[in-house]
Every structure is written in structure tokens, then in C-alpha cells.
Design a protein around this nucleic acid. Sequence first.
DNA 1: AAAAATTGTGTTAAATTTACACAATTATAG
DNA 2: CTATAATTGTGTAAATTTAACACAATTTTT
Lengths: 232, 232
Amino acid sequence: MNKYPHSTRILVALDCIVFGFDGEALKLLLIKRNFEPEQGKWSLMGGFLEEEEDLEVAANRILYDLTGLKDIYFEEIKTFGKVNRDPVERTISICFFALINIHAHNQDSAKAQNAYWIDLKNRPNLIFDHNQMVDLALEELRYKAALHPIGFELLPEKFTIPQLQKLYEAIYDSPLDRRNFSRKILSTNLLIDTGEKNQNSTTKKAILYQLDKEKYQSQFSAFHYFISDSMR
Amino acid sequence: MNKYPHSTRILVALDCIVFGFDGEALKLLLIKRNFEPEQGKWSLMGGFLEEEEDLEVAANRILYDLTGLKDIYFEEIKTFGKVNRDPVERTISICFFALINIHAHNQDSAKAQNAYWIDLKNRPNLIFDHNQMVDLALEELRYKAALHPIGFELLPEKFTIPQLQKLYEAIYDSPLDRRNFSRKILSTNLLIDTGEKNQNSTTKKAILYQLDKEKYQSQFSAFHYFISDSMR
DNA sequence: AAAAATTGTGTTAAATTTACACAATTATAG
DNA sequence: CTATAATTGTGTAAATTTAACACAATTTTT
């Protein structure tokens, strides 16, 4: 194969911000590093892009190693490329955020990576520019979730509207009106009533819904305005 | 400096989609390649990331070489990273789109790069995955311009509301109601009446406005809903 | 002076959003 | 077994926003 005469070849990393929701608060899956550099400190899950690997494949590989899950929803945010962002060697990092159902992921995979779910509000200081990455990821999550139905990715297959509301309240860190929220969500026609009710509840049992996957696909790009402008 | 034992270092390219507006149609600044590979074919403007260069600096360098302009509005879209996207050598490409005032840019810089303004509707086939890049850039432009006041970047310092409307009609390739558009734009309070009128017009001379830069900065992230959902 | 093209500003009905109130369900306490 | 507390489902009226449309004013050309 012919090669470009240009000589600067650079390490390409991928770093993933994995969001989860435990029913109360937004969580991050973070790595307590048991390897160098920066052993003992907290970081995002990452890895290097391999020579014969598509970028998208690499992202899926890293997410699979961390969570044991395939077909995770993820979205590229930005490439971080300051010259000295990694003190070991010039490395650019393509940064993604992923949304997973916190109860579906494989605990063993996480444990093997020395990963823990950390409440977003108690997040520790992270290595390199990973703090900035998380800040940006949260911003993007808020941006995207206000307009597109991505919140569902953080919930189990079947969920109630009050659960969904708590999720949105966690994402935006603000209370929402129960009645208006319910109407807004139902008016999208993205939810299917399963006929079942949430048996966990200690009071009135809420209706369990599931996502209408076809409508979700076809309407994904439409704006839904789940959250009013002033909330963001 | 210590280095990572990992061995796969990859060429990192940047490719820019430069949008312009001539008062009637959206334009792309494209390169007729007078160099290998793919000499004689059309492509986007690009370049390689240098060893001692921040990613953002590289993007600005490439835009400056092409247009002679600094402080251009640009936005990262996505990194293209299929293994065989470049037949010469594995290269990932970080893709940006930029918006410029077509009349402010330096013709000589463009000429030196063998670049031409091409009507978006007549765009030629481009090399590699550059067609996909343009498709995605147009999608992103439409997405962003529906919500945030980025259209102004494509216009001269002083402009009229009818000019702005023509721009939006070009971006979305659909007609807009003159009266509702005007009200919507003015209600953002982002425009300042300069007191001048457009002397070019052959009929009633329209008021020349300019952007309120402070409000533009402070309100950039707010949603403005310039375009209704159904238009996108 | 009239005609043609374009610009600025209203107006009204429909749709949406906001801010609330009330009735129904279910575990728990007495 | 009943009352209570917590939570869920649904409704309603006022305010705001959007959509659809009309008319008057300006300027060049005929």
C-alpha cells in the first residue's frame, strides 16, 4: 500500500462517558485505575483505536468490555486534541457518551475493569481532561434529551411515567409538573400501555409502558420539546 | 518523554465543509485537486494534524489557508474512521463545518488552493467519503440553524430581514411566511436597527440590521425555534 | 401619474402551554 | 376493618404562541 509522505502519526484514543439511572439519581460508570499511568486515580473508560478497526467498532468494543452489553445507544461528542492533554504521549481522544439500563449491564465486566457506578453529584476528580469530557457529555445529554426521546435508553424495558419523570428531573436537576409532563410524554404517542402495573410500588400502582420501537425509529429526528427552553 | 507501548499510531486528517450564501443559494467551497491522490477530482479542503499542534489550531489553520479569514464560526461534526476510507493509508478524519460571509473571504487564498464556490444543488461527486461528510454537514446546519442564531454567520455585517429570510429558505429549501418570519426573528431581540436602508434594492428599501453581539453570545444556547419542526 | 415589485405591520382563529384541582388506588397504622 | 398517607390518573381554564391571512407604504419603471 502506498503511504502518505506526511510523517505525523498519532495515537488515537476513545473515551466513553457511560450514564446510568438507578431510579433516583444519574450515575457515571468510572474506572478506579489499577494500571499506569495515574494508577489509583479515577478516569473514564477508554482504549486505543486499532490499525484494522473501524472507529465505530472500537467504540462498541470498549463499551462491551466495560458493560458486557452490545447495541448500546451512544453518540460522539467531540474529539479532544490539545497537544499536552496526555502527559505520556501525544494522543487525541474521540469522546462518546453512552446510555445504558443500569440493571441490564454485566456486573462482572464492570468489576473486571475495576469500574464503579458513581453518583454524578459526588463525582471524584478525574485524570487528564476527563472532567471536561464529563461536563460536555452532561451538557449534550441535556441538550439531546430535551428534544429527542433518548431518556428511554436509561430505563428498563417496561417503565412507568413517574419513573420517566424522575429520570428527567435527575437529568435537569429540577422538578417538573407531574400532570403536564405526563400529557407531554403521552402526546408523543411513543409509549405503549403494556396493560401491566408496577408491583414494586407501595401505594397506587402505576401503569407500565414500553417504547413503541417503530415510532421511536421513525420519529427520532423530530423535535419533541420534552423540556421547556427555560429549564435547560 | 515516556511513550505508550501501544503501537498503532494513525494519520489524523481534518476536513472542512465551508458553507457560503450568495443571496440566493447555499454554496460550498470545494477543491479541484491539482495534487495526488485523486488529482483532477473534487474534494473538501483538508489537512493533517501536526505533532505539535492543537486540534483547534489545526482547524483554524486549514480554514485560514483556504479563505484568508480568522475567527471563523466552525463546529465539529463527527470523526470518520472506517478502516479503508482513504485508499492510500489508514487515516481518520475529523470533520468540521464552517460558515463564512462569502463576500469577506480572500479570493486569492481560495485560488491558491484551487477552490471554487459551488452551488449546493449542483455539487459534483467528491472523493473518499466526502459526499457523506457534506450530507451530514447539511443535516447539522439545518439542525443547528433551526434552534440557534448561526445563520447570521453567513451574511454580511449589515443585512435586511428579507435577506435573512432568503438564507433560511435556502437552508431548508422551502418557502417561509414573510410576516411570521419577521415577527419571529424580531422577537428574539438579537437584531439592532442600524437606521440605514439597503440601497441595492430596486423597490422599497429594507431596513439594515446588525447582530447584537452581546445578546448573541449570552443567548446562544437558548432555543429560538426559528423554524417549525415540520419544516426540518 | 399609474403600475409593479417589494417591505412593514396588523388581526384573528387555532393550537399549545401553564398553572392549577380533584378523584382513584393501595399499603400501613390504629 | 377503617382511616390515613402517599401516590397516580385525568381534567379544566387562562395565558401564550403560532399560523394564516390583508392591507398600507415605499420606490423604480413605464
